[in-house]
Amino acid sequence: MNFDNPEYIKHITPLWEGERFSNGRPKVSEDILQRIRKITLEEAWGPLWQRGYTFQFEGDFKIIHPNKVMVGRAVTAVLVPMRPDLHETLLNYGHKEEGRNGFFNQWVIDSLEEDDVVVVDLFDKIHKGTYVGGNLSTAISSRTKRGGAIVWGGIRDQQQIVDIDNINVFYRGSDPTGIADVTMVGMNTPTRIGKAVCLPGDVVLATPSGVIFIPPHLAEPTVVQAEKSQVRDIFGFIRLKEGVYSTAQIDAAWPLALWEDFMNWFNNAPEATEYRHLTWDDELEEARKRGDDGRPTSDVRL
């Protein structure tokens, strides 16, 4: 066995075809991370739900910076209550066979890279379940630059952590005790956070509403669908204020004439500038097949 096993990580993330870190963890591009920082949690949730990924969201957290959005690549850890024989075996293995230093939580934080987010299942333990405090949060800040931690358990030194501006921490509760009586049984393995499942390399989108874990192979299609929803909403709000369309027209399947109005606006309006990397061929073809009134062409009565 070993912690942070590259072959195992590749085995559980077979749908990812892009770049990977040296440990096999999927490396979603910085461009996609930047674009995900601009979408809402609900905009990311919809494409995942439609594809059958219905256990990706958890909202029951306390948040160090409640109004700060955090986006990054997941580094996962799973801990269980301490059983002495298992605890000594795994701790000794990490120290002697893998050359790791300190306690289990330090192993994970020592592995972090820029834009990483630690995602930890600490089985909702708060007393003696404080995964990070001031020192380790400072280390997260130094290593990830703008990442942070999702902890299904506790933290300590909250007054110190709140002064670290460039990261965020989502957690279940705080306690003055240090971490104890726990054993890490998985590093960069599947991890359960409340009702959600997170794999290493998932894109973490953490907002005031909660946290959603986006599988790396769905990161780009998710952000594209979210951006399309955003820019259509911008257009819809403008036309509704102008009294051009009713809410029923905006919320229904758009007929070709409305799509043509949108495309003219999309290609020329300053509000659409940052979205012009998007293409609409599929949507326009679908509208043509439906006919101008939104019904399939074969149903149109002459």
Rank of each mutant, 00 (worst) to 15 (best):
L205D: 03
L41G: 07
D115W: 12
L199K: 10
N264G: 09
P190M: 08
N92E: 13
E227A: 06
R35D: 01
W16G: 05
L122P: 03
L48A: 13
K241A: 15
Q50P: 00
L90M: 10
M70Q: 12
E19Y: 07
V197K: 07
A139L: 10
G134Y: 02
E227K: 02
N101S: 09
Q56S: 13
A272M: 06
E42Q: 12
E260C: 13
I250L: 15
I140P: 00
F21H: 11
D281I: 01
K228N: 06
L218F: 14
L15N: 08
G243C: 15
R239Q: 14
P190D: 01
E7F: 09
V80Q: 07
E286C: 00
E271F: 01
T183M: 06
D157Q: 06
P6Q: 04
T222P: 01
I164E: 00
V132E: 00
T144I: 07
A180Y: 04
S298W: 07
D261I: 11
R83A: 14
A269Q: 12
V300D: 05
N135Q: 08
D293L: 08
M187N: 03
H11N: 07
G46N: 14
V182Y: 01
W152V: 11
R192Y: 09
I32N: 08
M263N: 09
A219F: 02
S111W: 04
V300G: 00
W254K: 06
P255D: 13
A248M: 09
M263A: 06
P176M: 04
V69W: 14
D110W: 00
P208N: 09
T76N: 10
A139S: 06
D281W: 02
Q158D: 00
Y245I: 14
D261Y: 08
N135V: 11
V69I: 15
G236M: 04
D181C: 00
S246C: 13
A139R: 11
F235W: 12
V117S: 13
R146P: 02
L48R: 13
E242N: 15
I64T: 12
M82E: 13
Y275Q: 05
G99N: 03
M184P: 03
V204G: 05
V185N: 07
F213L: 08
D181R: 10
L90Q: 11
G154H: 11
G99H: 00
R83K: 14
A248T: 15
